[in-house]
């Protein structure tokens, strides 16, 4: 499928989303669907750096939380509408990505991964100590009423998240097929080799950091509107960082489909699980799934599928 056609399909999905509130009367489905779509955005954003370039980011929740707090700040300070909150959050995420990348990417990937763990704690500490953002106890966020068309705030933010998800997936697919994606894949395969072939590795990695951070922060921007309340513990939650890692890993990190499939699967299962089982069990399930996939199917579900189709490549030890 060519890119314009792909973007058209995404746009059609978004338009179709406009009519969903008329078809489905129960707002709960929008409430749960919002979380699933949010994870599609986070996993897709994570995969730009983590999947294409092979740099692990444990701090997805830092970007998500930064996005949520940036949006809440822009609303509280200037009363900006949601669209500008999202753009502002994305800008903050991009800046954060470039800053972290600039500090750590010149050295080994392991350090980058550890620095991202650190980033979550630093930001959480910062928010804890900022009176204006509600500190440890959090802040209320009373958004203006949604457009009458949607019939409710939940339906509205669901649609907003659908738009963000469509943009994120189109962006990820465009990146994947462009020279940027080829460069990032070269970095993933072998950084010194890519460097000596003239791939501008540091600049490409910084670009990937910026885009990945921007997308994940955009995923956090509607969150205060969604819950009408924001506190550091849920904004910087471990589960977000964990899911951002697990979803692409389950789906497959090589192309845009992997994180989308992984997010749809895992987030739906979690939405059902949180209703039926405890949240501790939820984390345990993610942990076991992570171990199982990393050991048995390191290329994810999509990798399993292609291994099934081309068994000879697997047996000879060559990577498909």
């Amino acid at each position: 499928m060519t890119l314009p056609r792909f973007a058209l399909v995404a746009a059609l999905l978004v338009v179709a989303g406009l009519f969903l509130p008329m078809v489905i009367p129960n707002p709960y489905y929008f409430y749960a669907g919002y979380v699933v779509l949010q994870y599609v955005v986070i996993a897709t954003g994570w995969n730009i750096l983590g999947g294409y370039a092979g740099y692990t980011n444990f701090g997805a929740s830092a970007f998500f939380g930064a996005g949520a707090y940036a949006a809440a700040f822009l609303f509280k300070a200037f009363g900006l509408p949601l669209i500008f909150q999202i753009l502002g959050a994305a800008a903050v995420g991009m800046f954060l990505g470039v800053a972290t990348g600039y500090l750590t990417l010149r050295i080994q990937g392991v350090y980058f991964a550890i620095a991202t763990v650190a980033l979550v704690i630093v930001l959480e500490t910062l928010v804890h100590n900022t009176e204006y953002l509600g500190g440890a106890s959090g802040m209320t966020h009373i958004a203006p009423p949604p457009p009458a068309w949607f019939g409710g705030q939940t339906q509205f933010v669901f649609w907003v998240m659908l738009v963000i998800a469509a943009c994120a997936v189109v962006l990820a697919r465009w990146l994947e097929l462009s020279w940027i994606g080829r460069g990032l894949r070269a970095i993933r395969a072998s950084e010194p080799a890519a460097e000596s072939c003239g791939v501008p590795t540091l600049r490409l990695k910084l670009l990937a950091c910026a885009l990945s951070g921007g997308v994940m922060a955009a995923a956090g921007a509607p969150y205060p509107t969604y819950t009408s309340y924001l506190d550091p513990v849920s904004a910087f939650s471990l589960l977000i960082g964990l899911n951002a890692l697990a979803m692409p890993l389950i789906g497959g990190t090589r192309n845009w489909k992997g994180p989308v499939i992984g997010a749809l699967l895992l987030a739906s299962v979690q939405q059902i699980a949180t209703v039926t089982i405890s949240s501790e069990f939820n984390i345990l399930a993610v942990g076991v799934v992570l171990i199982a996939f990393v050991v048995l199917a390191p290329e994810g579900l999509l990798g399993l599928k292609s291994a099934w189709a081309r068994p000879k490549l697997r047996l000879s030890g060559a990577k498909p």
């Binding site: 692990t56 990937g109 991964a113 964990l242 069990f281 942990g287 171990i291 990393v294």
Partner: peptide, 27 residues
């Protein structure tokens, strides 16, 4: 057995494995 016999897993995979192990220990 999971990685090194396979020609060395990448950092992402071993980090993820230990991340998973720590969650299992906690729970």
């Amino acid at each position: 057995r999971s990685f090194e016999s396979r020609g060395g897993g990448n950092t992402l995979q071993s980090l993820t494995l230990f991340f998973g192990i720590s969650l299992v220990i906690e729970i």
